[in-house]
């Protein structure tokens, strides 16, 4: 259903910056009806890859095919028709603030110049499907994050697309809401056979609903396959990190309850060094470290919570501070 061949994307240099090689020689094939996940750290090129699929970005090299059509070759008008068959949902929902829930869902149908009666029936049905019929006349500002994403999903499905692209669709939501949104996506996939391509930096999302996964790093796909085999036997260091994170999240109770509790945030660049220090401390059993899923920042950095006896916690923090270039922000 989605086929990327030999894709490279280089953003030209801007204001003296170096050109950015966002994607390098990427091949990807997503079968019809499949739920395919792409996981990677911030800046890995996930969003760029996704935006190529509906032509929001054009590849520097390579071809993009969706449902047999070569997206990069389409004339403007054909591209618009193709886009109606490729839904997209976003991390920050991107709803129109000036329209009610009902009018937001009607938007893509209006743009496709569908008759009024068709629009009315379709919107009512979609709101029913995502469980928001009673909020039809509310404005987005009056909804919770989960409800907003439901509107986003209903809107993306309005023109009966064959493909649904999800860009960090649950990253702004808390864990419970995340799982209810994922349930909804899985249900839609099962009922309509829609193909889902979703990108995320949370391994739990991939584990929850994806059939296959590709791990991205530095503009390339470094590992791919069935979810169980990729995460069960991680080969690339990035994949291993994702697996480690999740194990810790599962093994320690969150939130950490202690008077000695300490949190610190580290950026993606510091991650490698931080893991190296924390790993042994945790294995010794003297401190407990957890990562709040909510604190997994979109910048790819994350916030850790350390729990344990004061001297143990301090010792670990000292060793973190010793690390050159490592700036640990501690909030006690």
């Amino acid at each position: 259903m989605i086929e990327l061949k030999g894709i490279s994307k280089t953003f030209p240099s801007q204001k003296g910056n170096q050109p950015v090689k966002a994607l390098q020689n990427v091949d990807l094939h997503v079968a019809q009806g499949e739920i395919f996940g792409i996981i990677g750290r911030s800046g890995a090129g996930k969003s760029t890859l996704l935006r190529l699929v509906n032509g929001l970005e054009t590849p520097t090299n390579g071809t993009v095919r969706v449902d047999g059509q070569e997206i990069s070759q389409l004339a403007e008008k054909e591209l618009r028709y193709a886009r109606q068959k490729i839904g997209m949902i976003f991390q920050h929902f991107n709803l129109l603030q000036s329209r009610t829930v009902w009018k937001n869902v009607a938007f893509p149908l209006e743009m496709a110049k569908k008759p009024k009666e068709t629009i009315r029936r379709k919107v009512d049905a979609l709101l029913e499907q995502v469980g928001l019929s009673d909020r039809a006349q509310a404005y987005p500002s009056q909804l919770s994050g989960g409800q907003k994403q439901r509107v986003g999903i209903a809107r993306a499905l309005a023109n009966d697309p064959k493909v649904l692209l999800c860009d960090e669709a649950t990253s702004a939501l808390d864990p419970e809401t995340t799982s209810s949104i994922l349930d909804l996506l899985r249900e839609i996939n099962r009922e309509t056979g829609i193909t889902l391509l979703l990108i995320t930096h949370e391994m739990s999302v991939v584990q929850a609903i994806c059939h296959r996964v590709a791990v991205m790093e530095g503009g390339q796909i470094v590992e791919r396959g069935e979810v169980k085999s990729v995460f069960g036997n991680p080969k690339h260091s990035v994949t291993k990190q994702f697996v480690q994170q999740t194990e810790w999240m599962q093994s320690s109770d969150f939130p950490v309850q202690s008077t000695e509790k300490t949190r610190f945030h580290c950026s993606p660049d510091e991650m490698q060094d931080v893991w190296a220090k924390i790993g042994p401390a945790v294995q010794s059993g003297r401190v407990k470290v957890s990562v709040s899923e909510r604190e997994l920042k979109a910048d790819g950095g994350m916030t850790f919570l350390i729990d344990g006896k004061r001297e143990d916690v301090e010792q670990l923090l000292d060793s973190l501070h010793e690390e050159a270039d490592l700036e640990v922000n501690v909030h006690v």
Binding site: L56, Y81, R83, L95, A158
Partner: peptide, 9 residues
């Protein structure tokens, strides 16, 4: 929001 509108054709 503009991008969303573009993505819907």
């Amino acid at each position: 929001v503009v991008e969303a509108a573009r993505s819907m054709g």
